[in-house]
């Protein structure tokens, strides 16, 4: 076994060791990840009532993905959450925010004038605020965090890049 090591491990050593994870870390992440994701979502939904909010929630959701990437390998995680998803989330977040802001403008009010929703559709101002928190800020933050992580991690493993490029259009 040891002779096999020293003779042929060089070129593949990198990719090999990527995946031989400590099962302790893996199992811990398995247990923790649902809780941290739930907590991130909780913060996102409860931005209006308790400390934190969608920015923090989004960051924690992103950190959960990072956690999974560290335990299961960055490559499989990248395959799991494709770049397209991330870009879609970030763009969708900005679009949602802009739409919620622009609709009152179209109705003759001001940008982000939530009162217009109440007048026109009977939706409480609170929900407009919530929609911005949930649909706007959180996806942007989470996807930017995860996207930066993936891109920064791309060069650290040699065989990863070509796939990443091909997966992204």
């Amino acid at each position: 076994m040891s002779s096999a090591d020293s003779s042929s491990g060089d070129s593949l050593g990198d990719a090999t060791s990527t995946y031989i994870e400590s099962q302790v870390i893996m199992v811990t992440v398995r247990v923790i990840a649902p809780f941290s994701l739930t907590y991130g979502l909780f913060l996102m939904f409860h931005g209006s009532g308790s400390p934190g909010g969608s920015f923090q929630g989004g960051a924690i959701i992103g950190a959960t993905v990072l956690m999974i990437a560290f335990a299961f390998g960055i490559e499989p995680t990248r395959d799991w959450i494709q770049n397209r998803t991330l870009v879609a989330l970030a763009t969708g977040g900005v679009t949602t925010f802009a739409m919620i802001g622009l609709i009152p403008l179209a109705l003759g009010g001001n940008f982000l004038e939530y009162e217009m929703y109440k007048e026109e559709f009977g939706i409480k101002a609170k929900w407009g605020l919530e929609a911005i928190e949930i649909g706007g800020v959180a996806p942007i933050v989470a996807s930017v965090v995860v996207g930066l992580f993936f891109l920064l991690a791309a060069g650290t493993m040699q065989d990863s890049v070509s796939e990443e490029v091909s997966g992204d259009e």
Binding site: G47, S48, G49, S50, P51, G53, L112, Y114, A125, K126, L129, I132, E133
Partner: peptide, 11 residues
Amino acid sequence: VTNAVTSVLAG
């Protein structure tokens, strides 16, 4: 919204 920070930020 009970969290005034949020109401300032998003409102």
